[in-house]
Amino acid sequence: MFMLKRMRPVPFTQVFFAGLLFSAASLNAVSAQADSAANRPTPMGKALDGSMIIQFAPNIFPNGQGLPSGIGLAQNGAGLYQAQCASCHGKKGEGGTAQELIGGDGPLSAPDADKTIRTYWPFATTLFDTIARSMPPAAPGHLSADALYSLCAYLLAENGLWGWEQPMGPKELAAIVMPNHNGFIRKFP
């Protein structure tokens, strides 16, 4: 404000204008409105190499997008299940310290509705996605694609939704229509 002191008295509007110029210059044009076009933040993103994306665990979509190639059989899945899953989910998938995976009866409108993979889950791809990324909890993300298809085939076969002899791969898994496929009311969009 020392600059203004040296000036002769001037009308208010001019003082105000001078003050604006002064403060803008002294603050090196910092703006409170960083989102206006002239004040976009300096871009800090670095171009992504496609190989980096491949390292991510794929997101598996209901249409099969993201599913790896591979093939599995329910009978192979049975052994894997006993070794990797039964200690928490029960020897017959009846549940234990973790969720019931095999079974579930009755309508979902019942007062004691049983929400299971068979009665409730709308997509079979969710099973693959969940096991691939998070199971077993002590060492997630290590099961091969073939092992994952075998586990899915086993759980779906035990739930009466897949054949024991039918080989399962990406196309077969994505084509399965789950019993509760139409059971959801989407609040969005």
């Binding site: 309508p107 979902l108 509705a113 059971g183 959801f184 009311i185 989407r186 609040k187 969005f188």
Partner: peptide, 9 residues
């Protein structure tokens, strides 16, 4: 009703 609400954020 037996239907479930999804994406109720």
């Amino acid at each position: 009703s037996g239907k479930a609400e999804q994406f109720d954020f």
